[in-house]
């Protein structure tokens, strides 16, 4: 394996403009994230055109800052990696076009990175964690359980049939009047709520089924809210949030553990925005200890969308011989494979 390969990673698939410099796929030299959350908050979700406009204005400074913080110049960069899907097409095109042009101008290789593979690769950052392992990727856009056999070798064991986990958090948070983004809000208010107050239904809980469905749960929460409001019962938002969160966390954690047992792999990890959820982390830690599994949590900052995870995935793609052409297009519904 080559030593000291420095990758510049660029990520613009949703509402974070991010660039990062990473050495050998693991050592984060800088990770600059410009988040647009406050811009999109008033709309209750990401507005694609507004996200794209902010990306194009921010990207130059974000890349410049990432190089500056890593104390390198473009001459020190060996490879440019950028997300080419899945994500919002207009947003993806900003980082992808920028990355291709940057690599072309410098005469260095360009690697287009799958965003989901990026989330999985967050596990390698500032860490010695290595494949094989079973990874739960849960965010606003994706919910997957993936068997990571080796770098770049994946077997998808389960995926969501409807809403992504993070999407369910956002929708329930909206119904409860908690605002956007829903994940952190529900996490916070649940701490003062009773998780056993409501027993909402769980989907696909049969053995060896690792797919998810969260839309039934979301509907059950909303129906229960309607019923109580109609009957003039005062809504206890914290109890709702806590019961909903417990349901999602139980489904996600038990499916991850069951998938690991199914594949007879004793290493598990989580990735994606929902991986920041404190109850999920707590419960998985406990379950992993009981089973004697090794569990790895990426740092919180690597769970949100960021350039470092893209640089890492780009590095492992590159050393396996993958280089993308200048004709690479954005693929908004890109699959893991």
């Amino acid at each position: 394996m080559r030593e000291n390969t420095i990758v510049l990673g660029i990520e613009t698939s949703c509402d974070e403009t991010s660039a990062s410099v990473v050495k050998d796929g693991k050592i984060v030299m800088s990770n600059v994230i410009y988040s647009q959350i406050n811009i999109h908050k008033e709309f209750g979700g990401v507005v694609p055109e507004i996200a794209s406009r902010n990306h194009i204005e921010a990207i130059g400074n974000v890349v410049k800052e990432a190089l500056f913080k890593a104390d390198v110049t473009l001459d020190d960069i060996d490879v440019v990696a950028a997300t080419y899907g899945p994500g919002l097409v207009g947003a993806l095109l900003v980082g992808l076009s920028y990355g291709k042009a940057l690599a072309y101008g410098k005469g260095i290789p360009f690697v287009g990175v799958n965003h989901i593979e990026g989330h999985i690769s967050a596990n390698y950052l500032d860490s010695d964690f290595e494949p094989p392992f079973i990874c739960l990727i849960a965010s606003g856009g994706h919910s997957h359980i993936v068997f990571v056999k080796d770098y770049g070798q994946y077997e998808v064991l389960g995926r969501t049939m409807d809403d992504a986990a993070g999407e369910a958090f956002d929708k329930v948070a909206r119904a409860l009047g908690l605002g956007y983004p829903g994940g952190p809000k529900i996490d916070e208010i649940s701490k003062s709520g009773d998780p056993d107050r409501y027993n909402f239904p769980k989907s696909f809980m049969e053995k060896d089924n690792f797919d998810f469905s969260f839309s039934g749960l979301k509907t059950a929460v909303i129906n229960q809210l309607h019923k109580e409001r109609q009957n003039g019962i005062e809504i206890n938002v914290a109890d709702y949030a806590a019961s909903f969160q417990m349901n999602v966390v139980q489904v996600l954690s038990s499916k991850l553990i069951e998938a690991a047992k199914f594949k007879n792999i004793k290493k598990i990890s989580i990735a994606g925005g929902v991986a920041s959820n404190s109850l999920l982390r707590e419960r998985l830690k406990k379950l992993a200890d009981e089973e004697g599994f090794v569990i790895h949590f990426p740092k919180q900052v690597y769970c949100t969308d960021n350039g470092a995870m893209i640089a890492s995935a780009g590095y492992f793609d590159f050393i396996r011989g993958k280089v993308s052409g200048l004709d690479l297009n954005a693929v908004p519904y890109l699959k893991l494979f």
Binding site: I56, Y98, K100, L102, K106
Partner: peptide, 9 residues
């Protein structure tokens, strides 16, 4: 984005 990437590099 293409112009910016080229101009920077």
């Amino acid at each position: 984005a293409t112009a910016k990437g080229l101009a920077q590099s």
